[in-house]
């Protein structure tokens, strides 16, 4: 081949390859093999962050003056269904938080019971996976103190939060919101079950009567409308098997990033 022909050949093959690359890109994402490799980075991220974080490194706590004027009501703004409506009507007097699963002493607590327990108040930043942030003041019971009271069995590994809201309407109920965290985050000092926000009772929009704050992770971990906490050794058997509503839809289980 002459120089010119070779150049033409090289140019056209380069153009061909880039066109192929553009159309093939989406197919790359849809390939289970490639996806498996790409998603393996989550484990690396989690190990690296846990190494750097340790158990007890605290998320930044802010001053009253840093509280943001707006805080988006995200996900569900009010759970559907007669049962939740009745709870709201009765001011959550009939609501009970169940903690069971791999525990020695299952608990059932009313909102009044929770409010009698030692509380923690913290002003922290909420980071949505979409990219926005808002700062609010939260008051609630440290989850670790409740779990300690139940006496975890040696096989306990995760706390699963079952919620009252259905974010996606499905026939099999798989659209119900749930989440899970491991025991390192469950016993972290800033991990609380919050019933107050910005010195007010937690509103329905923000998850009344109780929502989780797990401050070193993203917003989708901060479940609202908590009804039941289940201690498990694996979340593989729950719904999509990935440990949470958004995890079942492709998002990372470890949401520290």
């Amino acid at each position: 081949m002459t120089d010119l022909k070779r150049r033409r050949f090289l140019i056209s093959s380069a153009l061909g390859v880039s066109a192929l690359a553009l159309s093939g890109c989406d197919r790359l994402e849809q390939s289970p093999e490639v996806g498996g490799v790409i998603r393996s980075a989550e484990k690396l991220t989690m190990s690296a962050q846990r190494l750097l974080l340790g158990r007890d490194a605290l998320a930044r706590e802010f001053a009253e003056t840093d509280i943001s004027p707006a805080f988006r009501v995200n996900g569900t703004s009010a759970p559907d269904g007669e049962a939740y409506a009745q709870l709201v009507e009765g001011n959550f007097a009939n609501w009970r938080l169940k903690i069971d699963g791999l525990v020695d002493r299952p608990l059932e607590l009313s909102l009044a019971d929770l409010k009698k327990l030692p509380a923690r108040t913290q002003i922290t930043r909420h980071d949505c996976v979409e990219g926005w942030s808002a700062i609010a003041k939260w008051t609630g019971v440290p989850l670790g103190s409740l779990l300690a009271a139940t006496g975890l069995k040696p096989s306990a590994r995760f706390a699963v939060f079952h919620c009252a809201d259905e974010l996606e309407k499905t026939l099999d109920g798989s659209g119900r919101y749930y989440e899970s965290i491991d025991l390192i985050d469950a016993f972290h000092p800033q991990t609380i079950l919050a019933y107050r926000m910005n010195d007010q009772e937690l509103s329905v929009g923000h998850g009344a009567p109780l929502r989780l704050r797990v401050e070193r992770q993203l917003g989708y971990k901060q479940t609202k409308y908590i009804m039941h906490i289940e201690i498990v050794d694996s979340f593989a058997a729950l719904w999509g098997g990935s440990g949470g509503f958004w995890e079942d839809r492709g998002y990372e289980w470890y949401a520290g990033i």
């Binding site: 605290l58 930044r60 980071d127």
Partner: peptide, 14 residues
């Protein structure tokens, strides 16, 4: 700095 985990590990980033 966009990672809430890294912000807890290295608050100076903020």
């Amino acid at each position: 700095t966009l990672s809430p985990g890294m912000d807890a590990a290295f608050p100076a980033l903020l």
